[in-house]
Simulated scan of single mutants.
Amino acid sequence: MKAIRVTGSALSWEDSEGPGELPAGHVEIDVVWTAVNRADLMQRAGVYPPPPGASEILGLEVSGRIAAVGAGVRGFEPGEEVCALLTGGGYATRVIVPAVQVLPVPKGFTLEKAAAVPEVFATAWLNLYQEAAIKPGERVLLHAGGSGLGTAVIQLATAFGNPVFATAGDATKLEICRNLGASGVWNRKDGSFVDAVKAWGGVDMVLDPVGGSYIAEDQKVLNVDGRIVLIGLLGGRSAQVDLGLMLVKRHRLIGSTLRSRTVADKGRVMQELHRHVWPLLAAGQIEPLIDSTWPIDQADEAMAYVAENKNTGKVLLNVAS
């Protein structure tokens, strides 16, 4: 097979050793599309190594066709078009993945469109409806609203009756957030979001990929029993927390990652997506927002594009036509 190799800071698309023997309960996929996620940038920089036993190859999601089915797997056949959530290995022509992390392509979707679904919608569902356990009517503050994840969160939360206030650093991105369903927006370049979110009515949950100084600001806009779900550290790993406010208002600060969870945990998330989100995707009620597509041998340029925050929605890599 071929795969992206990371040597120092350089990427190269070259021949690579295959994914190995197909274990029971797994499927092998001929990859057609994969996607760039910030975790890929962090892994490449050496600050986010894959969990023990995971592939060293970048890539946390793919779409493609089933190449082979391991013992004990039911419901998949060679040639079937699927998309999958990975722990690594997506920047390659073939990948082996536990079958519970694989789903059929949503009805009416191309493989290109399906590649933009697994990671962002799994992350959105996990953090909104499992970690924060938000109920219909509860309100969400979302940072980095123009990201691939952000555009998924806005649509998903809105579809399930949870109003969204989105922040971003670009007026065009904020307009897209509004078009996707956000009922409140704020440009972070205009200063603190606190007064604007309070005027909007406050929130019951914050989805925060920033951390750092944002945590103290998040606390100021949280209603009683509010939850902050921290999913990234773009603003730094140290923060001030007002413990008095946390105590009096019964706030919760929850750290959450998807990649390091068990196969069983990821399988539960994917089955929840299949049950609750796949029908909305098939009906066109929600859909992944794709910013741009790049050939796999231009992965370096695509990753630089994401690193510079130029994308609104997902950036995809075409592995094979």
Rank of each mutant, 00 (worst) to 15 (best):
Q101W: 10
D225F: 15
I254Y: 03
I296A: 02
R252A: 15
K113G: 10
D300S: 14
D291V: 00
L230P: 04
G148C: 07
W33S: 07
L103S: 13
G235W: 14
A24V: 07
S147A: 08
T293C: 12
V97R: 03
W200S: 11
D208M: 10
G79K: 05
G150W: 04
G72Q: 11
T110K: 06
I286H: 06
N162T: 06
S16R: 09
V221Q: 04
V97K: 10
T7D: 15
P118A: 13
V315T: 15
P78K: 09
D204T: 07
A116R: 05
F193Y: 13
L126W: 06
G150Q: 10
I231T: 14
Y129K: 11
S238A: 08
I154T: 08
I228A: 08
S55L: 03
E301S: 11
A132D: 03
E287D: 02
Q298A: 13
K107L: 05
D30M: 11
R237C: 02
L11G: 01
V6N: 01
G202W: 05
A299R: 09
S147E: 12
V140T: 09
G148Q: 03
R268T: 01
V224L: 15
A71E: 15
F109K: 12
A264K: 12
A157P: 12
A152Y: 00
A307M: 11
G8L: 05
V203R: 11
L41W: 07
V221C: 13
G211E: 04
S183T: 08
R94H: 15
T257M: 10
L58S: 04
K310N: 10
H274W: 01
P104K: 12
D265V: 05
A92N: 09
G211V: 02
M205P: 04
E272F: 05
A216V: 04
I286W: 06
E301G: 13
G161V: 03
L230H: 03
R227K: 14
L230R: 01
H251W: 01
R268H: 02
V197A: 01
Y129S: 02
A124M: 09
A114S: 07
N187D: 11
Q271F: 11
I4M: 08
V120D: 11
V6L: 12
G191E: 04
S238M: 11
L316A: 06
